[in-house]
Simulated assay, not measured.
Amino acid sequence: MPGLYLIAILLSAAGVAALDARFRLAFWHRPGRAALAVLAGTALLLAWDIAGIAAGVFVKGDSPLLLGIDLAPHLPLEEPFFLAFLCQLALTVWAAAERRGTRRRERMP
């Protein structure tokens, strides 16, 4: 089913966003900083992908789950969405771990 991969990425991002909102971890704690971190991380990883594609290291596989729209050769439309999700997830997990560490340090005598 074309588009299933993109739908999975978006649903996963929505789940992480719901946890983020519930516990005010990243985007709901400091939205400007979070957005900048995700955009910068996505841009860096996309540049890395483009360099890998140019070097012949990265190639797009054939999958019926992709929409079939390429932004460039071997760069499917889903890739920037995946990279943004990866950055969002990493930022949210980092914020959760940082909060847990802070709470543990506050409890220590």
Rank of each mutant, 00 (worst) to 15 (best):
I53N: 10
C87Q: 11
A55Q: 14
A47I: 05
E78F: 03
T92M: 02
D20C: 08
D49M: 01
P76G: 12
T42S: 13
F23T: 04
M1P: 14
D70P: 02
A18R: 03
L4V: 11
L39G: 06
R100C: 10
P76D: 09
S12K: 00
D62Y: 10
R100H: 10
F81W: 15
E78T: 13
P2C: 15
A47D: 11
W28E: 06
V57I: 14
E106P: 05
A95W: 01
A17W: 02
L36H: 03
R22V: 08
L44G: 06
R33Q: 08
L6R: 09
A54S: 15
L11K: 03
A26H: 02
R30F: 03
R99H: 11
H29R: 15
R107M: 12
G68H: 11
I7A: 14
R33K: 06
R24D: 14
R100A: 14
P2I: 13
P76V: 08
A40P: 00
L25P: 04
G56E: 04
D20S: 04
D49A: 02
G56H: 01
R30C: 05
G3E: 13
L83W: 12
L45S: 03
P109L: 07
A13R: 01
R107Y: 03
L46R: 06
A96R: 13
V16K: 02
H74S: 13
A72N: 12
A51N: 12
F58A: 03
V38M: 00
H74L: 04
M108R: 14
I50F: 06
V93F: 09
F27L: 15
L4R: 05
G41H: 01
A37S: 02
P31Q: 07
A37H: 03
G32P: 01
E106V: 14
V57A: 07
E79V: 04
L36D: 05
P2L: 12
R33V: 02
